[in-house]
Design a protein around this nucleic acid. Structure first.
Lengths: 69, 69
DNA sequence: CACGGTTTACTGCCTTAACAGTAATATTTA
DNA sequence: TAAATATTACTGTTAAGGCAGTAAACCGTG
């Protein structure tokens, strides 16, 4: 599975971008509660909300499999 | 943004694994409708459902930013 | 310490994703 | 082509995520 702490990863990048949770939420067009949930690693959030945050923070997703490798 | 067609990517890997949508759904512990939706690139699906599918198909997620690079 | 801003936490309402069931269409195989 | 299988699509129900509002806890900084 993914042993990376995505929540902490996002939080770290948000901090480095100088944004508060509320600012990030507004920029991503989602609610502040959702930002909080994602940083707390709540997995049952909508994929599009995670994508919206990653886009604001300029983070890219890559999918890798033994086939594509 | 992500120009990768995740739905097609998953579908391709599912086919190569010799699984039907229903089999993949059962293995991932989710409904067949959700598998269909994900392969159709519906973004308003829950993140954990996507993770469940990727895990079954042995696909890993990586997050990359200019900072981590 | 006190003040202001941020984060964490909780609540309740509203919206909607997830799901099984079903059926129709498409694809594969005999 | 016919049969079997798989995919796509639709529907109604149910469970739960998204959200604003609110407040408490936390954290700096003057």
């Amino acid at each position: 599975m993914n042993d990376l702490d995505l929540g902490a990863f996002i939080k770290d990048h948000r901090k480095k971008a100088g944004l508060t949770q509320l600012q990030l939420a507004d920029l991503a067009g989602i609610g502040k509660t959702t930002v909080f949930d994602i940083e707390k690693n709540k997995e049952t959030v909508r994929f599009n909300n995670i994508l919206a945050i990653l886009q604001v923070l300029n983070i890219k997703i890559e999918f890798k499999s033994p086939l594509t490798k």
